[in-house]
């Protein structure tokens, strides 16, 4: 993200914060509905300094990263298989048509029944959220690779695996990245919702559980603190991590889809 865009964003956030604080100061709303920013930040500070929140962020992030890696591997295998078999492609397309539009949370009752309300269930829902957009994008990516790349690969006597690694993979990278972005967004939402529904199935739980617990103890500043953390992580990943990957790859290569 460009510097002036960052500054613009910070100015807006500050403005909104001031409006927020002013509204709180008018005393029109009970602090039970609208806590002051000071109390929210204080609660955030307490949760971080106690170390719980960091552990919960770590829990959430580790489960989401694990989910994304597993999805990536499965997606690769599925897409590669579909490159070699027409029958499998048609099966895969049918499965995608069924599974892709299905929100992970809708599967929750079944997931709990099959694998209980633990970490596995959350992982399953994350994989479900990430896998299908990734498969779709990888498939489109492979299909849209110019024929001439493959001919060049043949011409330079590369074997199938080398063509896959040296040519097809980088050539489909823009689609891969687009799939990852969608996958991340869906996984992040699924994770928070699932955690809020399951509770702390595993030791300290994650960010969703943090919010749920704060709600149970009627700690509204704590709820807002959790939301702020979720927003910050969302911005960091989407605007910084993905943006900088994009800048260093497809933008540099002039390969935007």
């Amino acid at each position: 993200m460009k510097n002036n865009k960052i500054i613009e964003r910070i100015i807006w956030i500050l403005l909104l914060a001031i409006v927020w604080e002013l509204v709180v100061l008018t005393g029109r709303f009970s602090t039970l509905i609208l806590p002051s920013l000071r109390s929210i930040l204080h609660s955030l500070y307490l949760s971080i300094s106690r170390g719980d929140l960091l552990a919960q962020i770590y829990f959430s992030m580790s489960i989401i990263i694990q989910g994304i890696i597993i999805s990536l591997i499965i997606a690769m295998v599925l897409v590669f298989l579909s490159l070699f078999s027409k029958v499998f492609t048609s099966l895969l397309e049918t499965i995608i048509a069924i599974a892709h539009p299905l929100p992970g949370i809708a599967l929750l009752p079944l997931v709990i029944l099959w694998m209980g309300a633990g970490r596995k269930a959350i992982l399953f829902i994350i994989i479900h959220s990430v896998l299908w957009p990734l498969v779709l994008n990888l498939k489109t990516g492979f299909q849209s690779i110019p024929e001439v790349y493959k001919l060049i690969g043949k011409n330079y006597e590369l074997n199938k695996l080398q063509i896959m690694i040296k040519i097809l993979t980088p050539a489909s990278f823009p689609y891969f990245l687009a799939g990852m972005k969608i996958g991340w967004a869906r996984a992040w939402r699924a994770l928070i919702s699932a955690e809020m529904l399951f509770g702390a199935a595993n030791s300290i739980g994650g960010l969703g559980w943090f919010i749920f617990e704060k709600r149970s103890f009627f700690d509204l500043p704590g709820v807002f603190a959790g939301i702020i953390v979720i927003v910050i992580i969302g911005i960091l990943i989407e605007d910084f991590v993905f943006q900088s990957i994009e800048n260093h790859t497809i933008k540099k290569w002039g390969m935007s889809t």
């Binding site: 709990i112 209980g116 309300a117 399951f198 509770g199 702390a200 749920f212």
Partner: peptide, 21 residues
């Protein structure tokens, strides 16, 4: 506190009866 699972009573009863989780 770190070993709690939040479940509504009917879900909790089912989970207990199946002896899992």
């Amino acid at each position: 506190d770190n070993r709690l699972v939040t479940m509504k009573h009917p879900d909790g009863m089912n989970a207990l009866l199946t002896g899992r989780e």
